[in-house]
Design a protein around this nucleic acid. Structure first.
Lengths: 247, 247
DNA sequence: GTCTATAAAGAGATAGAC
DNA sequence: GTCTATCTCTTTATAGAC
């Protein structure tokens, strides 16, 4: 495995984007058959496996079994197991970064932008929870691999956007003057990931008290939780907004 | 792999506790040589590996290399790779449960007990961060394995203790009357795990803003964060306690 | 696009000499 | 308690027939 990882590390990722575009576009089908091609199916089952068992613990055979082909046939669609992983998480991570950067630039006050960041992130997280869980759980793997470094970079850029919004809020007097921005963001991001994980996988744990939660209720919970924690003391009494998730 | 897992699943864990006691007690050494025996060394390097790369991604050969013996020799000390994992996380998980149950019974008001729970957990987490990170990251693995079910059970018991304290707080009027206990606990537990991970592994991420945080500051941060979120609205103005971690 | 067949390496684990 | 040697199975990945 070490050998193969080194090979990957040496690989460059330049020009990969163009190649991907061509490879991923589902061929226009003239007939009325479902648009899900083989490649998409493989990605779907791999996503489930990676989310549940982790990338390294999942074997290509398991993936192949799930789509009822032999493991060797997978390599007609993907060059390596790593490429499957990349295909799964790439768009989600880049999109999440784009969201954050776009929202950070909106002509709104810092708290409104922060609420928008939180809403959007939670929306994406629950919409594609498995994908984001993989992106989160394999973060150390990405960090070790040069091939995946652009994903770590994208995550960093998203962090910078969140950071700018929080800084603005402190400057504007909306947030606590001694707010620890770094701790706040890392805490919130991980809280949302964990929350979405729990939301989508309900009874994964042995804990019994499983009530019925709507996504809006989850949003309310986190919003109240976070805003009460970061607002300036003078604003302690202000109401917590209750937006509904609807992008 | 599936084969081996099935074998494990079939195994029972009864009477293992007594066996462990004998096996783990470091032999009394008459000479003045360091008390760290081979077995402890193996556990130490395995802990580092499991925390960094995950249990399944770590090979017994890597562990053996780290202690400069051959992989086969590991099996003089441990019957299986799983046994190494168990040895690493068992005491921490059981101790954490014992802590929680003991604190939940203390003759203090609910907020004081909650603060104690939080302090103690954070203390343990930072003291043995790698161990707790493994326990947390491999939770799905534990849940799938009958052999490890007693660990999932212990975690559930700890949850019940936290839950009792929060319920008391709601009943006593100290905490928000509509506090969602389940969400709060799972959020706080994961937040602490993530925080301790970050605290011990500082620049694991690409994010640059690494200041110097003391453990007490970290505790302050989380305590303020959580208490502001869960306290009854009428208590919004009350000061956040600033205990120092010193068990 | 999938199959058969297989290579090449690595995995966890064991037996017995020392 | 470690080594030598090895077993057995699994892993990722490839080559070429269909």
């Amino acid at each position: 495995m070490a050998t193969r990882q080194n090979t990957l590390r040496a690989k460059t990722n330049d020009g990969a984007e163009a190649k991907r575009k061509a490879a991923r576009r589902p061929r226009a089908k003239a007939d009325g058959s479902p648009p899900i091609d083989r490649r998409e199916l493989i990605l779907a089952v791999a996503t489930r496996r990676f989310a549940e068992y982790g990338f390294e613990a999942t074997t290509v055979r398991q993936i192949a079994d799930d789509v009822d082909i032999l493991s060797g046939s997978l390599y007609h669609h993907f060059a390596t197991k790593e490429e499957i992983l990349e295909e799964i998480v790439r768009d989600a991570i880049l999109q999440s970064r784009d969201d954050a950067q776009r929202i950070a630039e909106l002509p709104l006050d810092a708290e409104q932008r922060f609420v928008a960041l939180l809403m959007t992130e939670l929306h994406r997280l629950t919409e594609s929870q498995e994908v984001y869980a993989i992106a989160f759980n394999e973060r150390k793997f990405f960090r070790r691999s040069e091939y995946f470094s652009y994903l770590s970079k994208a995550k960093k850029d998203a962090y910078e956007a969140w950071s700018a919004v929080l800084s603005d809020g402190v400057r504007e007097g909306l947030f606590h003057p001694e707010l620890d921005i770094y701790l706040t963001i890392s805490t919130v991001i991980r809280m949302l990931n964990a929350g979405a994980d729990w939301y989508k996988n309900e009874d994964g744990s042995q804990i019994d008290a499983i009530a019925n939660y709507s996504l809006d209720k989850l949003l309310d919970f986190y919003l109240g939780y976070v805003l009460r924690a970061i607002r300036a003391p003078t604003r302690a009494g202000e109401a917590i907004p209750h937006p509904t998730i609807e992008l």
